[in-house]
């Protein structure tokens, strides 16, 4: 069961890599509410990493409200208001947009141009959908 992918030699600590992957998997519904996550031991052994690293990621996800620790059951996905969930998703997208704009800036491409490109992509997608119907 190799659900997570990490690259140990990346500059991003392994616990952070795991944290962002699981966060995304909860937000996009790969892990559904009340679903049990593999145990710390299991993940550590699958990925050949220190169990402390996995615990750290799980702990952080618990702290931020994504996971709940159940006695004898391990970690399960927390049931949360649609509103809160929606907010989390928007926050994540917001981060991605910031990153996109920063990248564009480094390439010398203006914010306006990026907005234009997004609009064009949205328009193209709508055309495609219409085409299919």
């Amino acid at each position: 069961m190799e659900q997570f992918i990490i690259s140990p030699s990346s500059g991003i600590p392994i616990y952070k890599q795991l944290y962002s992957q699981i966060e995304r998997m909860v937000l996009n519904g790969y892990f559904s509410v009340d679903q049990r996550l593999p145990s710390v031991r299991q993940v550590a052994s699958d990925l050949d990493v220190n169990p402390m690293t996995v615990s750290k990621a799980y702990g952080l996800l618990e702290e931020r409200g994504y996971l709940t620790r159940l006695r004898g059951k391990g970690m399960v996905v927390t049931a949360r208001d649609d509103e809160v969930l929606q907010q989390e998703k928007l926050t994540m997208l917001d981060e991605m947009i910031k990153e996109l704009l920063a990248q564009a800036k480094q390439m010398g491409i203006s914010d306006d141009k990026v907005v234009q490109m997004i609009n064009r992509n949205v328009a193209n997608k709508q055309d495609e959908t219409v085409g299919k119907e």
Partner: peptide
């Protein structure tokens, strides 16, 4: 071998 260290060391 730094990649071994990255996997198992804290």
């Amino acid at each position: 071998i730094t990649s071994d260290l990255e996997r198992i060391a804290n």
